[in-house]
Amino acid sequence: MKVDPYLIFNGRCEEAIQFYVDALGARLEVLMHFSDAPPEAQGGCAQTPEGVMHASFRIGDSVVMATDGAPGEPKPFGSFALTLTVVDELEAVRCFDALTDGGQVTMPLAPTFFAHQFGMVTDRFGVAWNVIFPKAM
């Protein structure tokens, strides 16, 4: 069994995926728009045919799934963070700096008692990230 995050971007899904491709080297695996579904399966989503019904992309070995969401109330992010574990300090700095573009630093990237580098940022889409280059345990 495994758990994969499914992020809802409220109409900014393709923009968010492109940001993660540029910032983190994400690799897009699946991208389906609401218009790709047969008419009988579109339901209330037909009003946003250009919207992303489902996407799947990889960041390193991890799968992240995403959507623009169904019509209705936007669903804000909250009470979770994605953790990006990197293999060296240069990668920590590169990823952290990329995620801060248009985002907000919650905790600057710095050495801590548990990591060579650790920092927290909320990106321009409202997704909270922890970037860590851990110490050997």
Rank of each mutant, 00 (worst) to 15 (best):
M137T: 15
I132N: 15
P5V: 11
S56D: 13
M32T: 00
A98I: 02
P74S: 11
C95V: 03
V87W: 04
A23E: 07
V30R: 07
E91F: 02
A46C: 09
L99Y: 05
R58E: 07
D88P: 04
A92K: 03
V63F: 11
N130P: 00
Y6G: 06
F80H: 09
Q47I: 10
G119D: 07
M65P: 14
V52K: 02
D123M: 09
C95N: 06
D68M: 06
V64K: 02
F96V: 11
C45F: 05
G102P: 03
A66W: 03
P49G: 03
E91K: 15
M120Y: 04
D22L: 00
A110T: 07
P71V: 14
M137D: 13
M120N: 09
L82T: 07
D88M: 08
C95S: 12
P39C: 04
V93C: 04
Q42A: 10
I132L: 14
A37V: 00
V87S: 15
L99V: 08
G69W: 04
L24N: 00
F19R: 07
G78F: 00
V63D: 03
L28D: 05
F9T: 03
L7P: 01
N130A: 13
Y20I: 00
E89F: 00
F118I: 10
A92E: 01
I17T: 07
V121D: 08
E73V: 11
G103H: 01
E50K: 06
V121T: 14
M53L: 12
V86C: 01
W129G: 14
F34G: 00
A81W: 02
V63P: 02
G25W: 12
K135M: 11
C45L: 01
L28H: 07
R124L: 12
F34V: 12
